[in-house]
Nucleic acid binder design. Structure first.
Length: 279
DNA sequence: CTGGGGACGGGGCCC
DNA sequence: AGGGCCCCGTCCCCA
């Protein structure tokens, strides 16, 4: 599947030559381990970090071995079996029943990020990027850049438009159009009649009825219906807790845990921590 | 109180 | 311009 191949190549492109040499000569699982040694999942999901990987310091290695119950080798780079979880190639199965999941190692998880396609430098089109002079973001076409530039307009701009339903103001017409969709719940579940604004929201919802869990953790084998939930789960495998309470210094693996902490023990009845301590 | 998971929404980006 | 896909984030519930 060409798209999978490109995406995979993107990921490899972002590693140092040392990384590449070793990963080319070793299995994808080994590459996954190297990724985790470099700083676990959040650093490979966060686009800002990804865009400018500057810190090669070794942080906390994964406390967990790659889950043996699935096939976590996504194929060596010279293999034409390069796979993404979107692929029809079934490289790994978490469950033995009908709910078939493919195992996501940290790297495989990352490479399915559609945004990473921005970094496809092997593509001829990627060489001629159109750069926003305000924020430096680059786009494949001038049309896309033009659309993006709308987001830099001021809210006071004469071009700003207000949503007739909820009065939210948008300076970007594509964002406005996207927002208008959120008021149009035309995707309805045949089973429970719940309605959604986007087809993929309905898709995700349908999994709650079917039990389908396409997103599997390659570390422990647990499968999820929702990619975001797998992402949060992946963070629970990390021994590195990125989110620290600025009052009591307790650390948490997930920002949501820290927020919960702020709302409960540490700041109950006190001033709002979210406004004064975020950062 | 914390950790973890399920479900979902908003908005950005690509083709 | 529209559809598809994705990320980030939140809310809620439960152990």
């Amino acid at each position: 599947m060409p798209r999978s191949f490109l995406v995979k190549k993107v990921k490899l492109d972002d590693f140092s030559s040392t990384d590449l040499e070793s990963s080319y000569s070793r299995s994808r699982t080994d590459l996954s381990l190297r990724i985790r040694q470099k700083g676990y999942i959040s650093e490979y999901i966060n686009p800002s970090v990804y865009d400018g990987e500057s810190d090669g310091a070794i942080k906390v290695p994964s406390p967990e071995p790659i889950y043996d119950g699935i096939h976590s080798d996504y194929g060596a780079p010279d293999s034409d079996q390069a796979d993404s979880p979107q692929s029809e190639i079934s490289s790994g199965y978490i469950n033995g029943d009908n709910a078939v999941s493919e195992g996501y190692t940290v790297d495989a998880f990352y490479i399915t990020d559609g945004r990473s396609r921005r970094k496809v430098i092997s593509s001829p089109r990627a060489i001629q990027r159109h750069t926003c002079n305000e924020c430096g973001k680059t786009y494949a076409t001038s049309s896309n850049l033009s659309r993006h530039k709308q987001t830099h307009r001021s809210l006071d701009s004469k071009l700003a438009k207000k949503c007739p339903t909820c009065s939210k103001v948008y300076v970007s017409m594509p964002a406005m159009a996207m927002h208008l969709l959120t008021h149009d719940l035309k995707h309805k579940c045949d089973i429970c009649s719940k309605a959604f604004s986007r087809p993929w929201l309905l898709q995700g919802h349908m999994r709650s009825h079917t039990g389908e869990k396409p997103f599997g953790c390659a570390h422990c084998g647990k499968a999820f219906a929702d990619r975001s939930n797998l992402r949060a789960h992946m963070q629970t495998h990390s021994a590195f807790k990125h989110f620290k309470c600025k009052r009591c210094d307790k650390t948490f693996a997930l920002k949501s845990y820290l927020n919960k902490h702020y709302e409960s023990a540490c700041f109950k009845g006190a001033f709002s921590p979210l406004s004064s301590l975020e950062g």
